[in-house]
């Protein structure tokens, strides 16, 4: 049994529902995320994961229900919500360091604070030597690391990641998964990580939310009680993986 989690609730999702006309995509989803928790969301393809994320970031407004951060409705102007897109989204005209500083500059953080956070991220990600390079001069995986660094630099209330490693090969994925864990541990961010890769979810998450087929509901919350670094060949790891795979099946 997992040990009891005493961290305060950071994010509350209550009855989150989204309709597009008559089409019900999200059906009264409710769950809580604790401060500093790493949550993975898995679900069948086309179950509405992207809509779910877009409601959390306020790209779409929910039809019913809402998302609360620290007890108040989420507001991108007030809260710090950060997002890592599936596609490379580094800004090509900014250097690596300026890309990482981008969100901090929009939030008008003091210069020293910005500089200090950018350096911290560059050090953590081993990108210091590329700080003045442009994303176009680096590989796709390095670009994805810039984006991840940019999001963590915000010290977000909530960091959303939408299948950020969907387009990477296995080796790169393993490497970046460890990297994201390192950043998360170092900075204590609250993370929702969407993936269709169950192994990835078990490797990363403290808690996995399984979505049902459309209209999406929360089918189950599974706490992954495994020590880190995790071993994908460990029998308990495999047991979690198989359990989630069974639960995700809708056929």
């Amino acid at each position: 049994m997992p040990t009891e989690d005493n961290r305060p609730i950071k994010v509350e999702v209550k009855n989150l529902t989204k309709r597009f006309g008559d089409l019900l995509v999200l059906d009264h989803m409710s769950f809580n995320i604790r401060k500093g928790e790493f949550v993975c969301v898995v679900g069948p393809t086309g179950c509405g994961k992207s809509t779910f994320l877009n409601c959390l970031t306020r790209i779409h407004m929910p039809s019913e229900g809402d998302l609360y951060i620290d007890g108040v409705p989420a507001d991108p102007k007030k809260h710090n919500i950060s997002f890592v897109f599936q596609e490379p989204s580094a800004l090509p005209w900014l250097t690596v360091a300026d890309n990482i500083a981008y969100g901090l500059k929009i939030k008008r953080l003091p210069k020293e604070e910005t500089e200090q956070r950018v350096n911290q991220i560059l050090d953590l990600m081993g990108l210091q030597e590329f700080r003045n390079a442009y994303p176009g001069e680096l590989s796709v995986s390095a670009e994805q690391r810039i984006i991840i660094g940019r999001s963590f630099a915000m010290k977000p209330d909530l960091l959303l990641m939408d299948e950020p490693y969907g387009q990477m090969d296995v080796k790169m994925r393993f490497y970046l998964e460890d990297e994201v864990i390192r950043l998360w541990k170092e900075l204590g961010s609250t993370v929702i990580f969407i993936t269709h890769n169950i192994e990835e979810a078990v490797y990363l998450a403290e808690k996995v939310l399984i979505l049902t087929n459309k209209p999406a509901k929360i089918k189950e919350e599974i706490v992954i009680d495994l020590p880190r670094p995790r071993d994908i060949t460990d029998s308990r790891f495999i047991a979690y993986r198989n359990d989630i795979t069974d639960k995700i099946k809708w056929w």
Partner: peptide, 12 residues
């Protein structure tokens, strides 16, 4: 579009 979304997400 994604570049504009980046700006929106960061609250620009």
């Amino acid at each position: 579009r994604i570049n504009i979304q980046v700006g929106q997400i960061f609250g620009g």
